[in-house]
Design a protein around this nucleic acid. Structure first.
Ligand SMILES: [Mn+2]
Ligand SMILES: [Mn+2]
Ligand SMILES: [Mn+2]
Ligand SMILES: [Mn+2]
Lengths: 217, 217
DNA sequence: ATAAATATTTAGCCTTGCCTAAAAATATCT
DNA sequence: AGATATTTTTAGGCAAGGCTAAATATTTAT
């Protein structure tokens, strides 16, 4: 299995999570920063290898084999992110690009030993669940902060966008996984929120609130 | 820089250590398990990038830039081997293949943080020196066990062959880095050696003795 | 129900890194 | 030195994974 094939499977997996139908060529090309024609080529190759199900013009979906492969890549990606943050003191905005490389290292023993060393973590530094060695992945109960009503108290449990600029913004506002958040007020005009985060008052735009996952306290 | 280019540079570096002249095409092809014609292609490409010096039919040598690049790959390879053995409890015969993959991960921060986490190791699990972040590599003073005279006492400090079968043989004989070895006798007929290793008597062939590095005690 | 817009596939080409077979240079032997 | 053997390069091709432009399906709008 090539890096390229692995990356396609991973992208198809992520896009499948929202999309209940087949994933379309264009959206894969967007995420991969490539062209729809290239996607068609690769998807045909993956179909021949029984990793995806594909009918012309009908989009693509993962077979069981393809899904398992994708989950193992996600497992490695998130496990390495934990390693980088917990063991090597990277910050949560620095780990993704390195994990994009490390997720392709082929050694079952390595990932299982790493898991053991890290104490069998269940979530990565961004609050995303880590599949176990059998491909089982926990579904974490979470809502977007933008959907929470005024007066409610919640805990921050994840980020939807995990790009460095967003994560750095959160660092600056001292919002982290585990922060206690109370929604003090919501502005009608622009849906911005007044929050109490731990002991500080913070105001955030709707865009920020739409990228923060929380759970009821 | 592609994986392939990195692997060529590493191989040229290793072959240069013995060979004082230019490294020849054939020997590179042997190590890479490829063909001389492929080597010529790549070597021309590396020369264009100022990583090697190459004149037709004259063999190839590394430029400063090429040498530094090669040393950084060796650094990563050996550092990861230490990590696998020290942190994840791999045995010394299991680490090479995984390190072959990990040595290509591109992140200066990663390798430097890993070095710090491991306590700035100076040698890998096979006794080979680890280049520092500036490309400085210690020259370890060592001789082959086969060159040691009868009656001498030495310490095992490295292996020349680090293939799994040889390392597993050494495990079985309880010979490890740091073992105290006394040469009790040498057989004229086949150059095999009678040794005292730590507290045990062991007999080894000349082939074994020609692959063990030792230093005077 | 057409027509227009959008999405997808096909056709044909490019680069990288590899190969085999043939040609050319160098080294070795008598 | 001249013949032979070895090493190295060149020529020409192949597969993977991209791309652009053109053709074809599908969806949306009138
Ligand atoms: Mn990530
Ligand atoms: Mn993550
Ligand atoms: Mn090694
Ligand atoms: Mn080693």
């Amino acid at each position: 299995m090539t890096y390229s094939e692995e990356n396609y499977l991973k992208v198809i997996y992520h896009l499948s999570l929202n999309n209940s139908k087949g994933v379309n060529t264009n959206s894969i090309a967007n995420v991969m920063e490539s062209k729809p024609s290239s996607v068609t080529d690769m998807v045909q190759k993956l179909a021949e290898k029984d990793l995806v199900i594909y009918k012309k013009y009908q989009g693509v979906s993962l077979t069981e084999k393809g899904k398992f492969t994708a989950l193992m890549i996600v497992r490695k990606h998130r496990m390495w992110e934990v390693f980088l943050v917990e063991t090597l003191d990277f910050s949560w905005d620095e780990v993704h690009d390195v994990a994009e490389q490390l997720e392709h290292i082929k050694s079952e023993k390595l990932i299982n030993k790493l898991e053991e060393f890290l104490g069998f973590p269940t979530e990565d530094p961004h609050g995303d669940p880590i599949p176990d060695r059998n491909g089982k992945i926990a579904k974490i109960d979470k809502k977007l902060l933008s959907e929470i009503g005024v007066g409610k108290k919640v805990i921050c449990v994840g980020v939807k966008d995990s790009s460095p600029p967003f994560l750095q913004y959160l660092d600056k506002q001292q919002i982290a996984l585990g922060s206690a958040i109370e929604v003090l007020a919501k502005e009608d005009f622009d849906q911005s929120l007044s929050l109490r985060v731990d002991d500080k008052d913070v105001s955030v735009s709707n865009k920020i609130a739409s990228n923060l996952f929380v759970k009821p306290v």
